[in-house]
Simulated assay, not measured.
Amino acid sequence: MPGITHRVLETNGIHLHVAEAGEGPLVLLLHGWPESWYSWRHQIPALAAAGFHVVAPDVRGYGGSSAPPEVEAYRMKELVADFVGLLNALGERTAVVIGHDWGAAMAWTCAALHPDRFRAVVGLSVPHLGRSPQPPIALFNTLFKDRWFYVLYFQEPGVAEAELEADIPRTIRTIFAGTPGFDVTAEAVRSRKPGDGFLTGVEPPARLPAWLTEEDLAFFSKEFAHSGFRGGLNRYRNMDRDWHELPELATVKIEQPALFVVGEKDPGRAFAPVDLMKPLVPHLQEMLVIPGAGHWIQQERPDEVNAALLRFLKSLPA
């Protein structure tokens, strides 16, 4: 894309491919599942034009970045170390960290554990909920009992990979433009039984939403044809490990300036109670709900998201 450069940097013993643009204070953009740096294609030029050095890595396991084979290589401690090391590789002391989906969880955790390195934080779609009262997988088993739930389906290595990689273009089209398996409010998802897959009962739509092009889908499909889905899925397989390794998340407060943005129709709102984050993020400046927007918020509604990000960034101390 014009104005965006690419390079590979070494951090925390691995290599991260990054897309970057602009000069000025560093802004780090962290994508979610199943995405890539390309999810920020509308934000990178806008933030760069406003006077920021914008860096969007492919998270480990994705795109052009290293993809270690071990499940535990994707625990939150390793991911946070990647991003602290990325600041070092860039020669920067601090950054504003912005994340979407799993990238939001990473951003919140970066801010919680390293307030000296991450001077402000923005979460898109996923709020900061601290630490659950019990390990997440046990909690999900209690909540969903015999009902199908995508996080539980993702736990067995190799199962979801085989399904999602069987026809990558179809998978990507269904997840981004159709009914994704994480939409627990959708009838096709609610009617699933144990043993069903992430794509069971749903079909890729013939027509794309206005915010998504065939070229966009082709880019994502090419990235996952290269990397596969295992790295991203391994993030879900570390939820209990994170719970045990990061007990401080139960009480630590994020004292930096913060912003939360979510789509009104994001299916994650059904099981991520936003109000729980308020005592953990006392300097949350705004909780913005964008009417009509879904989960892929920065791609669906780039103008509104960019305006909110720039309003927040320009409010920060120089």
Results as ranks from 00 to 15, higher is better:
146 D>K: 04
32 G>Y: 04
67 A>D: 10
207 R>I: 09
105 A>E: 13
169 P>C: 11
222 K>P: 11
256 Q>S: 13
258 A>W: 11
216 D>M: 00
273 P>E: 03
187 E>Q: 15
83 F>P: 11
30 L>N: 02
218 A>T: 14
63 G>T: 05
51 G>S: 05
159 V>K: 15
225 A>N: 15
282 P>I: 06
43 Q>E: 04
204 P>V: 03
178 G>S: 12
286 E>M: 05
261 V>G: 00
208 L>F: 07
63 G>Y: 04
176 F>A: 06
21 A>N: 01
280 L>C: 06
160 A>W: 01
219 F>A: 05
253 K>G: 09
277 M>N: 09
266 D>V: 00
92 E>N: 07
229 F>K: 05
100 H>N: 13
81 A>T: 10
195 G>F: 01
8 V>W: 11
159 V>G: 05
112 A>D: 08
18 V>E: 02
197 G>E: 03
220 F>S: 02
188 A>H: 06
298 Q>N: 09
227 S>I: 10
23 E>T: 13
255 E>C: 11
318 A>S: 15
268 G>Q: 13
27 V>G: 02
95 A>M: 00
304 E>C: 05
151 V>H: 11
68 P>Y: 09
164 L>I: 03
79 L>S: 07
103 G>Y: 02
97 V>M: 08
19 A>V: 03
7 R>T: 15
224 F>L: 11
164 L>T: 04
305 V>G: 00
289 V>W: 03
208 L>A: 09
53 H>V: 02
22 G>C: 04
77 K>D: 13
255 E>W: 09
185 T>N: 14
113 L>W: 08
299 Q>V: 04
66 S>W: 04
68 P>E: 13
49 A>M: 02
18 V>C: 03
60 R>Y: 08
72 E>A: 15
66 S>R: 00
308 A>K: 00
206 A>I: 13
55 V>N: 01
132 S>D: 11
317 P>G: 14
146 D>R: 04
171 T>W: 06
194 P>Q: 07
47 L>Y: 02
242 D>V: 03
55 V>M: 01
174 T>R: 01
183 D>E: 08
99 G>Y: 08
97 V>I: 14
37 W>I: 07
177 A>W: 06
195 G>V: 03
258 A>E: 13
128 H>Y: 15
284 L>H: 03
154 F>D: 10
29 L>R: 03
254 I>S: 04
52 F>S: 10
23 E>R: 11
202 V>C: 10
92 E>H: 12
12 N>W: 08
80 V>I: 12
241 R>N: 10
296 W>R: 07
5 T>S: 15
287 M>D: 12
278 K>F: 14
241 R>H: 12
148 W>K: 10
